[in-house]
C-alpha cells in the first residue's frame, strides 16, 4: 500500500450538550479514537448511518473543527500544531466539497465571484484578463456553459451548483479533497454525472479523496478503501472495494442495499433493537444490542480493531471470516 497522505491517530471529538441552566451537561463522543491513513492518490470511503460521526470525521481531517484528542497529519505535517498563517497556507492543498449545493454558495456572489474566492483568500488573485480566463477554465473543466459565470446560485439547478462547488474546490489544485456526501441531495441521474466528474479528476490530477456517504453500493463502486463507522467508532476497514464484510454491522448495511435487479431480491433480516443513545454508550461493543451473533463478552468488553487476513481491520469478537 502507498504511504498515507493524511494520517489520523487516536482522533476523538466530543460534543457537550447542556440541558439548560440546571440540567446536567452530557458528553457525546461524535468521533471516538479513530486511527486511519488515507493512501495518496486513492479514494477512501467512509460509510455509516446518520449520527455515526462520518461528517465530524470529515471536518476533523481538515481541521475545520478542533479535535478533543488525537492528531491529524497532512503530508507529514501535524495540523494541530500550525498557527493561522501556516494553516491558511496548507489549506491550498486540501479542500472540501459539501453535501448541500444549495447553501454552499453565497447567494449574493455570482458564480465567477465564487470561483475566484479561493484565489482571493489565498492572495493569489489573478489580475487583468487572466482572471476571466481562470473562471472560463474552471467552468469548462466541470462542463458548465461560459454564460454561467454571471449567474447567481439560485439560477442554477442542484447538479450545476455542485459542479461549481467542485470547480471551486479544485481551483487551487489541491492534493486532498474531502467529499462530504456530495450527491446525497441530488437525483440519481445527476448523482451519476457528478461521480463521473469526480472520478475523472481523481485520475487526471492523482487526487486523494475522503468520500463520505451513506450509500454502501456507491462507496463500493467509487472507493479503493472502505471504512465503516458506527456510533463514532470505526467498526471495519476493508482494504478492497469488493472485500467481503466481516463485521455484522457492515454485513447488515450491505444486505440493506437493494440491487437494481429483481433476480437479487432478498428477505431482509431486520436488525433488532434500537441504536443506543450516543450520550450513553454501552460499555462493550456499541453494536451489541442489535447484533444477531452477540455474546456475553460483546456486552462487557469493547472489541479492538484487529487486522484481518484480507488486509483490512475489524472490531468484532466474532467476525464472520
Amino acid at each position: 500500500m502507498t504511504t498515507p497522505l493524511v494520517s489520523m491517530h487516536g482522533l476523538s471529538r466530543a460534543f457537550v450538550s447542556s440541558k439548560g441552566m440546571f440540567g446536567e451537561s452530557r458528553t457525546m463522543r461524535a468521533v471516538d479514537d479513530v486511527t486511519l491513513g488515507l493512501p495518496a492518490g486513492k479514494v477512501t470511503g467512509v460509510v455509516g448511518e446518520s449520527g455515526c460521526g462520518k461528517s465530524t470525521l470529515a471536518r476533523l481531517a481538515l481541521r475545520l473543527i478542533e479535535a478533543t484528542s488525537g492528531s491529524v497529519s497532512f503530508d507529514g505535517v501535524e495540523l494541530g500544531g500550525l498557527g493561522p498563517a501556516e494553516m491558511r497556507q496548507i489549506r491550498r492543498r486540501m479542500q472540501m466539497v459539501f453535501q448541500d449545493p444549495y447553501s454552499s454558495l453565497d447567494p449574493r456572489y455570482t458564480i465567477a465571484d465564487s470561483l475566484l474566492e479561493p484565489f482571493a483568500i489565498q492572495g493569489l488573485m489573478p489580475v487583468g484578463a487572466t482572471r476571466k480566463e481562470r473562471v472560463a477554465e474552471l467552468l469548462d473543466m466541470v462542463g458548465l456553459a461560459q454564460s454561467t459565470a454571471s449567474n447567481f446560485p439560485h439560477q442554477l439547478s442542484g447538479g450545476q451548483r455542485q459542479r461549481v462547488g467542485i470547480a471551486r474546490a479544485l481551483a487551487l489544485k489541491p492534493q486532498f479533497v474531502v467529499l462530504d456526501e456530495p450527491t446525497a441531495s441530488l437525483d440519481v441521474s445527476i448523482q451519476a454525472q457528478i461521480i463521473e466528474l469526480l472520478e475523472r479528476f481523481q485520475q487526471q490530477f492523482g487526487l486523494t479523496y475522503l468520500f463520505i456517504s451513506h450509500d454502501l453500493s456507491l462507496v463500493r463502486y467509487f472507493c479503493n478503501q472502505i471504512v465503516v463507522m458506527y456510533l463514532g467508532r470505526i467498526v471495519e476497514v476493508m482494504a478492497a472495494p469488493d472485500a467481503r464484510p466481516q463485521h455484522p454491522y457492515s454485513r447488515a448495511l450491505l444486505e440493506s442495499t437493494f440491487a437494481p435487479d429483481p433476480a437479487k431480491r432478498r428477505i431482509v433480516q431486520p436488525l433488532g433493537g434500537e441504536i443506543p443513545s450516543p450520550f450513553a454508550l454501552p460499555p462493550g461493543c456499541a453494536f451489541a444490542a442489535r447484533c444477531a451473533n452477540v455474546s456475553e463478552r460483546c456486552r462487557r468488553e469493547r472489541p479492538a480493531l484487529a487486522d484481518t487476513d484480507a488486509g483490512g481491520r475489524v472490531a468484532c469478537h466474532h467476525p464472520n471470516r
Binding site: V188, S217, Y221, A259
Partner: peptide, 11 residues
C-alpha cells in the same frame, strides 16, 4: 439510463 445510474456489484 435510469437503471445505469445505479452502481452495481462488479461495475
Amino acid at each position: 439510463s435510469l437503471i445505469g445510474c445505479i452502481p452495481v456489484e462488479g461495475l
